[in-house]
Design a protein around this nucleic acid. Structure first.
Length: 286
DNA sequence: AAATGATCCAACCGCTGTACT
DNA sequence: AAGTACAGCGGTTGGATCATT
């Protein structure tokens, strides 16, 4: 290390005269792998490439090791369950690293790429504001679950008649209330769903919704793609009237929901009732 | 078979946070 | 308190590959 680097901070990672960029060759991979397996990184990635005889910067070596060379890294397609976990955690928490925690042997970079190339399009137009995310994270702590996923799974499984988790992708939509009424008072909040969160079904079919209200009350409704509700009933004292308003007036089925017609579609709304409707977030499972 | 456009994904960039001196 | 090294993150890039014409 030069005296400059020793006194003034990290070595530059962009010295093009010295540092090679771009894809790694098999020889470089072998060199890096053998060195790390023999010596470890020594707690110093910056000096590693020099010691290993590589014309790469330390950061590049670190990424190559973490994302590709280290043992037990999985590459390839994701299962439905993994898809669900990634979607949930990436959407709710906004963290790819947390997804890594649940999906052993999958790198954050791979999750990020998978999200960007496969899932992002699926959920385009759906946005979680920092405020909403903060509320959800707070609620997650309130429930004392290690993750939002656990909290969701727990709540879903607590519903009578649901004995296994659906193979699910999670859609998140924001609901806005046109009044500040409380479901607890018996008045039904009027809820509108803002496009393009709900999209038109390709063909008429019936989907079954289960809405998890803020007080774990349920509304189970069936609707047609034209928006009409053919059945509506509540479970519990405070069935969320807003849901029927939603289905009766505005509901248009999401393509992914429609694709799963016949199965139960779960709408989780556990992060606040009509009182907090402006910050509500619902998750639709199929 | 060749050209073109779309998609995928490894790698890079720039930034922030944290631990340490 | 300030500087340094490193980890980690989100965003982006560009080459490789695939699909379509």
């Amino acid at each position: 290390m030069s005296s400059f680097q020793k006194t003034m901070g990290r070595a530059p990672c962009s010295d093009k005269a010295i540092v090679k960029k771009g894809h790694w060759s098999p020889e470089e991979d072998k060199q890096l792998k053998e060195y790390i397996e023999k010596h470890g990184n020594g707690g110093n990635w910056i000096s590693l490439p020099r010691k290993a005889g590589l014309k790469r910067c330390g950061k590049s070596c670190r990424l190559r090791w973490l994302n590709y060379l280290r043992p037990n890294i999985k590459h390839g397609s994701f299962s439905d369950t993994e898809d669900m976990i990634i979607t949930n955690l990436y959407t709710i928490i906004g963290s790819r690293s947390l997804s890594c925690y649940y999906l052993n042997h999958v790198t954050d970079n791979e999750i990020k790429n998978y999200w960007n190339t496969n899932l992002k399009k699926k959920f385009s137009g759906i946005q979680i504001t920092p405020t909403k995310r903060r509320i959800m994270q707070q609620k997650q702590q309130d429930y004392s679950f290690p993750s939002s996923l656990d909290a969701l799974n727990h709540l879903i499984l607590s519903v009578p008649g649901i004995e296994s988790l659906p193979i699910a992708a999670c859609l998140v939509s924001s609901l806005t209330s046109t009044d500040s009424g409380s479901t607890g008072s018996g008045s039904a909040a009027t809820v509108t769903v803002e496009p393009p969160l709900l999209l038109q079904c390709a063909e008429e079919q019936t989907c079954n919704y289960v809405n998890f209200g803020a007080s774990c009350n349920l509304s189970c409704l069936s609707s047609h793609s034209d928006g009409s509700a053919s059945q509506s009933f509540g479970i519990g004292d405070e069935a969320w009237g807003g849901a029927s308003s939603l289905l009766g007036q505005k509901c248009e089925l999401m393509p992914v929901v429609a694709a799963a017609a016949g199965s139960i579609d779960l709408c989780f709304d556990g992060y606040g009732g009509a009182r907090e409707a402006a910050d509500q977030v619902s998750m639709y499972y199929y």
